[in-house]
Each structure stands twice: as structure tokens, then as C-alpha cells.
Write a protein that binds this DNA or RNA. Sequence first.
DNA 1: ATACATAGTATATTTTTAGATACTTTTATT
DNA 2: AATAAAAGTATCTAAAAATATACTATGTAT
Lengths: 119, 119
Amino acid sequence: MTKKKSDAPICALDYAFRRIGGKHKARILWYIYQQNNVLRYGELKKMVQNITSKMLTQTLRELEEDNLLNRKVYPVVPPKVEYSLTETGKELIPFIEHIGAWGRAQMEKEKVENKKKDE
Amino acid sequence: MTKKKSDAPICALDYAFRRIGGKHKARILWYIYQQNNVLRYGELKKMVQNITSKMLTQTLRELEEDNLLNRKVYPVVPPKVEYSLTETGKELIPFIEHIGAWGRAQMEKEKVENKKKDE
DNA sequence: ATACATAGTATATTTTTAGATACTTTTATT
DNA sequence: AATAAAAGTATCTAAAAATATACTATGTAT
């Protein structure tokens, strides 16, 4: 049988947002991309500030399951695990860049508007 | 004072996803765009199949609050209310198009893979 | 033998989202 | 007087997402 998260996606947009719409997902992909496409669990933990290890693990597992991340385990002690973007994951980068830029511009605009309001 | 959804966004990406990451948000913007940038409440209700009026209203209010949608009320009976994209909302269209295309391609790939697996 | 490092698990709880169902408003029409 | 149309509200409940806190495994270094 085939998997199902809660049921079939309604359309391509729905499908896409289920994969990267989570609270930290796009950010995690972005951080990895920025760090030359490799980050260890502990490094991510520091970058995604305030995330609990449970959430981080869960999110990473979902990204892996959706084939956006590779997880490479080194058989050493203490453990070493590296996360990197898959080819499919890399395809999302321009898009993440785009919406990040939009967000940045919006935040700027809001700041200006709020300045006006408060004076 | 200034508003807050639950608290300040962590970064531009976080900011952006809070605005369009909801279950139906991107889809609603997309539908309106596709219909020449105007849709009435009842039309949206039909297009966003299975959404409850409560959710639809709530989602539309959030989009309006975030300045992605205009809400135009005609003072007639029975009521007539039209929703259209703001300029800011329109800026998101290329991005929505992009991720929709990615989703479509991914779904295709998965279909092919599942076919292989199942035979 | 004890402590440390790293990458997690386990469990319980809270918060956020979403869903179900019924009801409201105001004129025009029958 | 009753009914209909469109765009919602109100209330309650359920499901999903996120948080808090504590704990585990295994070699290596002290």
C-alpha cells in the first residue's frame, strides 16, 4: 500500500505546502543550503533557536521521508549525523529565496507604516 | 500598540509563511487570481471544496488583515461581497505559480515511482 | 568508576487549527 | 405570512501541531 499523511492532497499547491509549510521546514532547508549543504543535528539545533529536540527530530524525519533531505549517519561515538539537501530539496531553494525576499520587503514596509502611525 | 499573532516573526521566511502557510491561503489567492481577480464569498465557498463557512470567513479575514486581499461590500440584500488581490497579494502570484509547478512535477514523479513499486 | 559528548526517545500537556451544526440578518418575492 | 438568497456568526468538539521535561545509548577520556 501507499502512504498517506491524513489523506490525499487536493491539488499541487496543497501537496507542496504540506511538504514545506511546517513551522520550521523552509528555514531548515535554507540553513543547510547556506552552510554549503551540510549541517549536523547539533548545529541545526543551535540555528533553529528554541526548537525542542523532539520537534527538530520529527521535522527532520518528515523532510527525509518526503525526500527533501539526506540523513547520513557515521557509526562513531558520540554519534555524528549529517543532513544535506537532496536534488529535490535543492529545487526548492529559488522558491524559498523568492518568498524570503518578499517577506523581507514586506517587513520593511510595515516598519515604515508603523513609524508613521506611532508619530 | 502594534498587533501580534502569537509573537514576533523570527525572520523573513517565518514572517512570509505565517501569512500564506495556512491550509487554504495560497489556494484562495490563486483561485482569485485565476478568476480575473474577483471572487464572491459564495464562489470561493464552492471552489475551496469542503471548507466550512467559519474557516472560509476566518481565513479571508486573516488575508485581509495581512493586506493580501481587498474586501468590497455592496450594500444590497441579499449581501454581495467581493474579494480581490491587493498589490501586495499579487506579488505572491509568481511564487505560488512556482511552487505549484514544483508540486505538480513531484506528484508526477511519485506516481511513476509508485507504479514501479506496485508491479 | 565516573563523567562527557552527541543524537536522539518517551511521555504528558498545552496551544493552535480545523470541523460540525445550528442560527442570524435584511429586503424582495410568492 | 412564509420563503428565499448571500454572507456570514456562535458555540462546541475534535484533531493536529508544538512545548516542556526528563531520560537513553555508547564508546572515550579522566
